[in-house]
């Protein structure tokens, strides 16, 4: 497809202090427009809110179908936040940045580091 680049970028890693690191995985299945959009949106968001403390792993299920089982992937694209705990999942092309931020508990607090307490789930909608 168009930009073959993003197929396997073990991307933009800044090995920052262990516990503060945001470990994100983006599951895609081939270079579909939705997947490309999701990756673009994710990168933009990370740059803005998680500068220097994130790592994005893009997994193409067409190449590694066996990996879908582990994170219970159904929808494509799916973004999984492995770290910090708890694990969070966001599906879709991430075009609604606001909702992604809320889901990742980034909206209420300006500082991106906070996650220590087990925050009650933010109501969707």
């Amino acid at each position: 497809m168009t930009r073959a680049r993003i197929k396997k970028p073990k991307t933009t890693t800044r090995p920052a202090a262990g516990s503060d690191l945001w470990d994100l995985r983006l599951y895609v299945a081939g270079l579909t427009p939705k997947s490309v959009a999701a990756f673009d949106n994710l990168k933009r968001m990370c740059k803005e809110y998680l500068k220097g403390k994130y790592r994005i792993e893009v997994i193409d299920l067409l190449l590694h179908p066996q990996l879908a089982k582990g994170d219970q992937i159904l929808a494509i694209p799916t973004l999984v936040r492995k770290l910090p705990k708890p694990i969070k999942m966001v599906i879709g092309d991430l075009s609604d940045t606001e909702r992604v931020l809320v889901a990742f508990d980034l909206r209420q607090r300006t500082a991106p580091t906070v996650h220590s307490e087990l925050t009650p789930r933010v109501s969707r909608k």
């Binding site: 999701a38 879908a68 966001v90």
Partner: peptide
């Protein structure tokens, strides 16, 4: 499939399911 764990933002499809079935 547990609703609580998943946030939906924007367009998606179930290609992941297809991949798993196919596999």
């Amino acid at each position: 499939v547990e609703r609580g764990e998943v946030e939906e933002t924007g367009e998606y499809d179930l290609e992941g399911l297809f991949v798993r079935l196919n596999y």
